[in-house]
Design a binder for these strands. Structure first.
Lengths: 334, 334
DNA sequence: CTGAAAGCGCTTACAG
DNA sequence: CTGAAAGCGCTTACAG
């Protein structure tokens, strides 16, 4: 069932059917009969033929490090949302935190499947830069600030700054830091910088012995704070680069007899769904990941339709959510 | 840069280049020179032309209700994993729990983009059935048992049965139920049935007043148990259809002065990442969603390569994870 | 307003 | 082992 069949059944030429389907320079009479035939047959043009002919896929490639991550899935939700009323579909590529896979997809997408790419990388390497320098399709980097390339990202520095400043205001004088590797420009470097700047502005001394680099898991947070406790260092505040790290850390502190927030005021960044439902509920910073997705999609759409000509960077703000872990413990418990 | 350009540069015909790229019935000498040209130019065949010619997309469509859900993302992880070493890519369609969108994608995929579909629906309607009855591509239903159609699913009934039986063994005599709507065959109907069967087998009486239908959110769990408490009904056990419901419920009980597990032994289904890190940690049933993804992908691959000819249903087992919420409260707390 | 023709880039019988 | 030819289904100048 192709366009010629439809044309025959409708008693017109394939050109006319095509015109009906596209621009629509067709007489009302023929429109009627073509519509009828299409309705009856359920005909739909074959996209691969259209793609070949039009050099257009109507698909956006979305490369993400891990789909089973709350932040990533919200980015994807945001993209989906923005693309909803367009003709574009999403082609999702999951790299499983594997930089090699990421590069492969970038190269695959350059000649295939998609009209543009939204890339959420954890680590933007020289190789990334080299490929994107001469990429033949528009690319938007979601959730990371990469100067010189189109990107949409959170102000991680501000997020951390606000959380740590809040801890200081709550009376914490020795605020420990549980973060992730600096190579991660957003969650790693950015939040660490915010932590340091907040300490400085609050007149507190930075202490390398109170800082630990862990990874993104709950367990890693648990172990990280355990080491700190075992080392004998004293702290009355704790800032964690992510909610998951904080969840693990709080759990460990509880089993170690340290009370949150009484002994250790704690805050993190992420505002994951559970952060509100934890006990104590977690003071954390809400990052608008869905906005990142929406704005990234919007930006790529701009490049695709020619509206946006020059490169651009969009930085989004965040919102501190003060909860029990830095303030007070509800009565019911004691 | 197309196959003819490459052919000219290599001094051969396009047919030979094509053969080099595919079957490979080419002399060693020409292979060498073609390889050289391709390496230098970075040429890659245009997929849309191949798609048109071969009537093959090398893409699996994956329709999911919500990507920002832990179980769904694990299904997607599993699919990605199984497809890793094949030529297939994933085309992800996010329906946002909108049945209409689900139908639209199903229809879209019938003539476009993909060779086969993995569908994770919450609600399998008559419309679904009607479309899939005469679908022209293989479809596998992930995470739901739909007799007559290929599917891979959890034994939800068994999962609930084991959890509730465990609560009874821990001494709970009045086990409340916080579940989701029966239309959801898996999380709703299946787990409810398991709950009822477990009560019966434990010699406990089912009590409609101890059952509440809520939705999938933490808040809904909170409110559900609040209503139950307000109604004055007494219960010393609680089974929740999902972890999130349990998280909300436990939180509510805490604020209401009910101790978990001392006053109310609690269990759920899901084994989400946080369930281990909650306080008390949550007794729950681990469902192998990644396995569902892997097996669904495997099944569709079987249909696509012709290995699998007849329809089939695959039911996966689960694993009860006993934790604090049904057993004991660690010392550190009291 | 409409149709015949050409062509997008690829692959695969077919003939040699 | 290799190349010329035909064709996948569509769209868009072009001529009328």
């Amino acid at each position: 069932m192709n366009i010629s069949d439809i044309a025959k059944m409708a008693g017109v030429s394939p050109s006319t059917v095509s015109r009906y389907l596209n621009n629509g320079y067709v007489s009302e009479e023929k429109k009627r009969v073509i519509r009828k035939v299409i309705d009856e047959t359920g005909y739909a043009p074959l996209t691969s033929a259209q793609n070949l002919r039009n050099r257009k896929m109507n698909v956006i490639g979305v490369i993400v490090p891990k789909i089973s991550s709350e932040s990533i899935s919200h980015i994807v939700d945001g993209i989906t949302d923005r693309l909803r009323d367009t003709d574009y579909q999403i082609f999702l590529a999951n790299t499983d935190n594997n930089v090699k896979k990421e590069i492969e997809y970038l190269e695959l997408f350059e000649n295939n499947f998609v009209d543009g790419v939204i890339l959420s990388a954890t680590d933007f390497t020289a190789k990334h830069r080299q490929i994107l320098k001469r990429y033949n399709k528009p690319v938007v980097i979601a959730s990371q600030n990469v100067p010189g390339f189109p990107c949409v990202y959170n102000d991680d520095e501000e997020a951390a700054y606000n959380a740590v400043t809040h801890l200081a205001q709550q009376g914490a004088g020795h605020i420990a830091y549980l973060g992730v590797m600096e190579e991660d420009l957003s969650a790693g470097h950015g939040r660490h910088m915010g932590y340091l700047r907040a300490l400085a502005d609050a007149g507190l001394e930075a202490d390398k012995n109170l800082e630990k680099i862990v990874d993104f898991t709950i367990y890693s947070g648990y172990n990280g704070i355990q080491e700190l406790i075992d080392s004998g260092e004293k702290f009355d505040g704790l800032f964690c680069a992510t909610d998951n790290i904080a969840i693990g850390a709080i759990n460990c502190m509880r089993y170690s007899g340290l009370k949150v927030p009484d002994d250790v005021k704690t805050a993190a960044v992420g505002d994951s769904v559970v952060s509100k439902a934890l006990f104590p509920s977690l003071t954390t910073v809400h990052l608008y990941y869905d906005e990142i997705g929406r704005e990234s999609a919007d930006m790529i759409l701009g490049f695709l339709d020619g509206t946006a000509k020059s490169t651009r960077q969009l930085k989004l703000s965040s919102e501190l959510c003060v909860r029990e872990s830095s303030t007070f413990m509800p009565d019911a418990v004691s």
